[in-house]
C-alpha cells in the first residue's frame, strides 16, 4: 500500500472522493443506459418497421423519425449539454449534478442507439420475417419474437458500443457540472496539476469499458448459433 501511496501521492489523500466519483459515474451510466436503452430501442424498432421494406411501411413517419435522429446525432454533446439546459431544469428542477446530467445523457444517447438498433435489425433475414408472416404472426409477434430475437447478437454488440460511448459522455458531462470521474479528472487532476488523479480516473474508466466489452462479447457468443 505504501508503494501505491508513493506512486499516487495525491490520490492517496482522496480515495473516498475517487470512490464517490466512481459511484457517480456508474450511477449516471446505468440510469441513462436504462432510460435511453428502452427509448432508443423503441425508436430503432419504429424506424425498422416503418421503413419501406418494413412490416408496416409508413414513409411519412419514417422520414420524420429519420431526420430527427440525424439532427440530434449531429449536435456535439458539449453543445447539447448547454442547449437543453432549460429542459433539464424543467424535468429535474436543477441543471447541475449527477441527476441533472441524466437528461442530456439520455437525449444524446437515444438517437445514437436508435440508429445502431436500426442497423442491427435490418440485417435480420427478410425471408425469416416473411416466413413468420406466412405462419400468421402478428406485427407485435414479429417485433418481439423475430426481430429482437433473431437480431439479439447484433443488438448486444451495438448495445456494448453505445454503453462504451455513454461512459465517455458521462466523463464529458462531469466536466460541465455533473460529478463523476470526468469531473474528478478535470477539476482536481487537470486544474490542480495532480496528474496521478487524472490517470487513476482514466484507469477506472478503462476498467469499466473492458468489463462492458468482455461481458458483451461473452453474451454475443452465448446467443450466436451460426
Amino acid at each position: 500500500m505504501s508503494f501505491i501511496n508513493k506512486m499516487l501521492p495525491n490520490v492517496s489523500l482522496i480515495w473516498p472522493d475517487v470512490w464517490q466519483a466512481t459511484l457517480e459515474t456508474l450511477y449516471m451510466t446505468i440510469v441513462s443506459a436504462i432510460i435511453a436503452g428502452i427509448l432508443g430501442l423503441a425508436l430503432g424498432v419504429w424506424l425498422v418497421v416503418t421503413d419501406q421494406n418494413g412490416i408496416t411501411p409508413h414513409p411519412v413517419t419514417y422520414n420524420i423519425l429519420d431526420k430527427l435522429v440525424n439532427i440530434f446525432r449531429s449536435i456535439p454533446f458539449v453543445i447539447l449539454l448547454t442547449v437543453i439546459y432549460p429542459l433539464t431544469k424543467a424535468i429535474v428542477g436543477t441543471s447541475i449534478g449527477n441527476t441533472a446530467a441524466l437528461v442530456p445523457l439520455v437525449v444524446g444517447t437515444i438517437p445514437f442507439y436508435a440508429r445502431q438498433v436500426q442497423t442491427a435489425l435490418v440485417q435480420v433475414d427478410p425471408g425469416v420475417i416473411e416466413a413468420a408472416q406466412a405462419m400468421g404472426a402478428s406485427n407485435v409477434d414479429i417485433i418481439f419474437r423475430v426481430y429482437l430475437r433473431e437480431g439479439l447478437p447484433d443488438l448486444i454488440r451495438v448495445s456494448v458500443l453505445t454503453l462504451i460511448s455513454l461512459i465517455g459522455l458521462t466523463a464529458m458531462a462531469g466536466a460541465v457540472g455533473a460529478g463523476g470521474l470526468g469531473n474528478l479528472a478535470v477539476s482536481i487532476g487537470y486544474q490542480r496539476y495532480q496528474s496521478d488523479v487524472t490517470i487513476v480516473a482514466m484507469l477506472i474508466i478503462l476498467v469499466m469499458v473492458f468489463l462492458v466489452q468482455g461481458i458483451g462479447d461473452w453474451l454475443t457468443r452465448r446467443t450466436t448459433h451460426v
Partner: peptide, 28 residues
C-alpha cells in the same frame, strides 16, 4: 392471420430462425 395458418409455406432458403433450436422453430 387465421387463414394463413391453414396455408403452409416453404422457401428456397428455408428461412429458419437461427436463434432457435429445431424443435423451437417447429413449435413457433
Amino acid at each position: 392471420r387465421l387463414a394463413r395458418r391453414k396455408i403452409g409455406m416453404i422457401f428456397q432458403h428455408f428461412n429458419l430462425m437461427n436463434s432457435r433450436t429445431i424443435a423451437a422453430n417447429i413449435d413457433y
